[in-house]
């Protein structure tokens, strides 16, 4: 799953640690999501969307080969 979390986080002027603290996970988890090495749970995706005041699909998009 692709995401534009790094862009949104940097636009908000947040470090990975600050975002992690805001949504209740570790910095390593935010780092893994940004590097497409971990797909967050629905609960965490909702928290991230709420934090950036947008919809989940504004942050996360399925990979091209997953859309079929």
């Amino acid at each position: 799953m692709e995401n534009d979390l790094p862009r949104r986080r940097e636009a908000a002027g947040l470090s990975q640690g600050e975002l992690a603290e805001a949504v209740g996970v570790t910095r390593q988890t935010i780092n893994a999501i940004e590097r497409d090495r971990y797909d967050p749970s629905l609960d965490l995706a909702f928290k991230l969307a709420a934090h950036f005041e947008c919809h989940i699909e504004d942050i996360f998009q399925p990979d091209d080969d997953e859309e079929t």
Partner: peptide, 10 residues
Amino acid sequence: VPLQDERDTE
């Protein structure tokens, strides 16, 4: 403090 989170569990 999140000592472990969902990614650790996974």
